[in-house]
Design a protein around this nucleic acid. Structure first.
Length: 263
DNA sequence: ATGGTCGGTCCCCGA
């Protein structure tokens, strides 16, 4: 059996609801990790999404951030609603759950990694500290030896071939060497970037700024990723960036990435 | 080019 797992930064679930519902009906992913829902838990359009056959878990926040995890399969356990180690971190950026797939438990996290601009500065320090906490959690998860899919908006451009013009992004928190090093450090633990695992693909993007005609000019960046534990990477069949939602009216500035697993 | 984009809001801030 296949399990499809998607990540999509929707940039406000309320502003995006018709687009999100259309996309869920059309693509019907088994699991959808949403970021930047920009609402509190009680404001999330839970009923409309449950009607499409999803179990819904949210970690909401007023105005900013907020993540959701939607699953057609039963959610056995919500393991975490925040990354450990952030005693004074109030930002809603992480939810991790165990999904009951046909092959057994699959652990999925919906991740909204801090943007970090301007860099240097306190926001960039917060980004790097958050990435260290994510690395620590990713390392702990390897001990379970189960399929783990860390899906979301990482705000990291991994390679120069993941941006239309790397020079235009020089100095940005999404591309700085320390940002890439922190992202690589998670991969070196033993996690695979699902998209990079497929050879020969470059200059495919998941985000295009609303400004300056970035979408029609295809001035994009690839910052939404699926990181896979070995047990998930072994079962990866395909991964695609679904550009259709970005071309619609009232589009998010991000578009979904969808992984298909034999799980 | 003299603006140039959104979304959520105490009318600017974050992306």
């Amino acid at each position: 059996m296949t399990l499809t797992v998607a990540a999509w930064n929707v940039n406000s679930i309320k502003a995006r609801l018709p687009n999100v519902l259309d996309w869920l009906k059309d693509k019907a992913p088994d699991v959808a990790c949403l970021q930047e829902i920009k609402c509190q838990d009680e404001g999330f359009p839970r009923l409309e999404i449950e009607e499409l056959g999803y179990n819904v878990e949210t970690v909401g926040q007023k105005s900013y951030n907020g993540v959701a995890l939607l699953s057609k399969r039963p959610i056995e356990e919500v393991a975490l609603r925040a990354l450990p180690g952030g005693e004074d971190d109030e930002q809603a950026r992480y939810v991790e759950a165990v999904i009951a797939a046909d092959s057994g438990p699959v652990r999925v996290a919906s991740i909204y990694l801090p943007n970090g601009n301007p860099a240097p500065g306190p926001k960039y320090d917060f980004k790097l500290a958050w990435m260290k906490r994510l690395k620590d959690r990713a390392e702990a998860l390897l001990a379970f030896e189960e399929p783990v899919i860390l899906a979301g908006d990482y705000n990291v451009i991994p390679r120069d071939s993941d941006v239309h013009d790397a020079a235009a992004w020089e100095g940005d928190a999404l591309i700085l060497p320390a940002t890439r090093d922190a992202f690589s450090a998670i991969k070196w633990l033993g996690y695979a970037d699902a998209f990079e695992q497929v050879d020969g693909r470059a200059h495919q993007y998941t985000f295009w700024d609303y400004q300056a005609g970035a979408w029609p000019k295809n001035n994009g960046i690839r910052i939404d990723h699926l990181l896979l534990s070995p047990q998930a990477a072994d079962r990866l069949k395909s991964v695609e960036i679904d550009k259709e939602p970005r071309g619609r009216e009232k589009a998010s500035d991000h578009t979904p990435i969808i992984g298909v697993f034999e799980l």
